[in-house]
Amino acid sequence: MSEARRVRATRWGLVLAFLALIEIIPRLGLVNPIALVPLSEMVWQLWLLLKDGTLADHILRTLTSIVAAGALAVVTGLPLGVALWRLETTRRILQPYLTTYYAIPIFAFYPLFIAIFGLGSMPVIIIAWAWAVVAIVLQTVIGLDAVPPVLVKVGRSLRLSSWRMFTRIYFPAATPHIFTGFKLAASYTVIGVIASEFIQAEKGVGFFVGFSYNNFAIQNMYAAILLILVFAVALNSGLLALERKLYGRQG
């Protein structure tokens, strides 16, 4: 117990020290003032941008894209995963391609989708969906594969129908893995949306970072980066905590 507390204290100490450095280094003039602004100024600027509504549209656009792409990934990924798990041959055919999938530099495809669909939410959502969905598919297959045979035997001994076998045995047993898939998909969706916006877009928080940089609005840029990092880290930690709470005791 005391070790866990020491660990947490040290971790927070390091994080705070890092934040303090970001505050102090530019204040002491150790770096070019157009390269880095003090943390407090980032926070203040972010507050101003939020208050005067400059960021509202961008945030709305980014969140909409994230939710759309994430929901799409879940709705398509789960059935695809279950299908792949059932279709043994198809799965073995696709196996090497699925393992290689995340090696593909997906963002190179983004301009191609812009050319087809025009600059807007559509290409962003497609890229984010494509980046996230495979994680759900793979984790669903892994989860269903990992169901302990003895649980399946229990179901068989009770003469469960195949539908009930799936809903009462396979699926619940596989949920910890599937949840991991959701967690990965969530961060991939965020990365996919914001990175695409940064590369090229007309709206969105990612776009705002690039736009500010190109227009030498360094304070705005750092304010938006800060917002993105806080959001991504909070989302990730939240899902991690939820995962521990839901499945921690199942090992």
């Binding site: 971790r11 990365i191 990175a195 991504a232 991690l240």
Partner: peptide, 16 residues
């Protein structure tokens, strides 16, 4: 101490 920190950095949109 550092594991959650590395995992967090791994999960952020680094392009920005």
């Amino acid at each position: 101490v550092l594991e959650p920190v590395t995992l967090s950095v791994y999960s952020i949109p680094k392009v920005t």
